[in-house]
Nucleic acid binder design. Sequence first.
DNA 1: CAGTATCCCAATAGATACTG
DNA 2: CAGTATCTATTGGGATACTG
Lengths: 117, 117
Amino acid sequence: MVTKRGVCPIEDYGYEAIEKVIDMIAGKWKLRILYLLTKYECLRYGELKKHVPGITHKMLSMQLKELEKDKLLVRKEYPQVPPKVEYSLTVKGWGLVPLYEQLGIWVMENREEFMGL
Amino acid sequence: MVTKRGVCPIEDYGYEAIEKVIDMIAGKWKLRILYLLTKYECLRYGELKKHVPGITHKMLSMQLKELEKDKLLVRKEYPQVPPKVEYSLTVKGWGLVPLYEQLGIWVMENREEFMGL
DNA sequence: CAGTATCCCAATAGATACTG
DNA sequence: CAGTATCTATTGGGATACTG
């Protein structure tokens, strides 16, 4: 039953663009990584691993590489031994915050669905 | 380089809730299906299949079942031969429109990234 | 410390055939 | 028309070992 109308802008940008955005932010790990970086602003590889319980070495490595490729975060390597690498968000990455906020709003609107988790 | 601050609400709802939302809307097909229903409001199974080029019978069937289970759309079956089934969005499904709008805004903010598609 | 490489198993999705 | 069942090819992700 349709009870509410709305304007959906997907067509203006094409499916491919939207799907690419979904790919960038979807997934169990990317969301967590991006969120941690909005919170702590700058984290080392090992710190990220500690803060994302359950993620494997391989997955963290792959996800970070993808996020870097998508220009959502930057990787800063310090040329020293032992190596030190820091990750932080780009402006583009920070731009996702309103999207996450909207996500939160929708969760609140349907909170009874999510209480049982 | 961090140049912009923002407040990220993920922690207020817990990762699980947000991940469940992502699961609900992510994926190559769900977004298309939901979008078509915001546009046409009510579509039969075969009409959906026509409007989502490339989707297989099996996938459309599975995705619709999941979307129905997540209460994003409703399935209305007419008891006749040959069978007729119509799909339309629920209020909860329509509630996703602002989320898609925010997605579109972010695409526009980074449009140079998405032009080459 | 911060990765990469390899192997292997489980889950996913496509094609096809069948049904009320 | 609108599905379900089955079989199979491909992929994704975990565990482990190795490297600068």
